[in-house]
């Protein structure tokens, strides 16, 4: 782990340059992209997002959770210490602590809210990862590279939504039925929802969305004005979890 001074100065200098240059490059590249798309008259950008319609979400139903955890080999570990979850429910007022008050109406008080990775626009987990094992794709999916993760759990400390789980032990014995088409994880790596990127690659929609009979989950490209997600965002008032933190969560909730 030794680095000589010359090497350090090189990396250090590059790093500082990089940090200084990044916002500038970001702005320039955005401007260029906007110009290009304006010229062509089409939007080239793609930003995947999800709308959760809590009004349609049935109490006690676990279809989306079962579908996701089944297809992704998420182990079921009863002990909350070692628990792993990609999508789960939490009481509304716990999920939206900023919205909590004595008189929450509309049947929302104590009702379950579906939680998953927010696939943030400005993800703090990606910012802190020392190996780029977690990174943001161009379409907005915040991905995990399980091959590269060293298990430092900096991302778990950085995520303000509790969306990340760590494999405190070998998960295999806790997977009821292994789906051979998707890898399990190994002990010592962090995991979380991947927006079903492996299904998207085959032209399928996310497993949770597909499994929901009540249309409580809608998935799509939020940059596409005619998409279903945009239609719901237009016609409903939506909220997001902890927007004040500047992470830009991409899971929208109709309440």
């Amino acid at each position: 782990m030794k680095i000589d001074r010359r090497g350090f100065l090189k990396i250090g200098g590059l790093g500082i340059l990089g940090v200084a240059a990044k916002p500038v490059i970001d702005v320039v590249s955005k401007v260029k992209l906007a110009e290009a798309s304006a010229k062509k008259g089409v939007l080239v950008e793609k930003r995947l997002a999800m709308v959760v319609n809590l009004k349609n979400c049935k109490d006690g139903c676990t279809d989306c959770i079962d579908a996701c955890h089944g297809v992704h080999n998420v182990p079921y570990i009863a002990n909350p210490k070692d628990e792993i979850k990609w999508i789960w429910t939490e009481q509304y007022e716990k999920a939206f602590p900023d919205q909590e008050h004595r008189f929450i109406g509309g049947g929302m008080k104590g009702s379950p809210a579906i939680l998953l990775c927010n696939h943030c626009d400005n993800p703090s987990c990606v910012r802190v990862c020392p190996t780029k094992a977690t990174f943001k794709r161009e379409d907005g999916i915040v991905m995990m590279d399980y091959h590269r993760c060293i298990g430092c759990r900096f991302c778990m400390a950085a995520c303000p939504y509790g969306s990340r789980s760590f494999n405190w032990r070998d998960p295999r014995p806790f997977i009821k039925k292994i789906n051979p088409d998707f890898p399990t994880r190994t002990k010592g790596v962090v995991e979380k929802c991947n927006f079903c990127e492996e299904r998207l690659a085959k032209g399928l929609i996310p497993a949770c969305v597909e499994s929901c009979k009540n249309k409580a989950l809608v998935f799509g490209n939020v940059e596409e004005p005619n998409s279903e997600v945009r239609e719901i965002l237009r016609s409903n008032y939506t909220i997001r979890r902890k927007p004040g933190l500047g992470t830009g969560p991409q899971i929208y909730y109709v309440v």
Binding site: I11, V19, C129, P130, K132, R148, I150
Partner: peptide, 10 residues
């Protein structure tokens, strides 16, 4: 991996 994939934002 911390050295193999240096990440100055971390």
């Amino acid at each position: 991996n911390i050295i193999l994939y240096p990440t100055p934002n971390s």
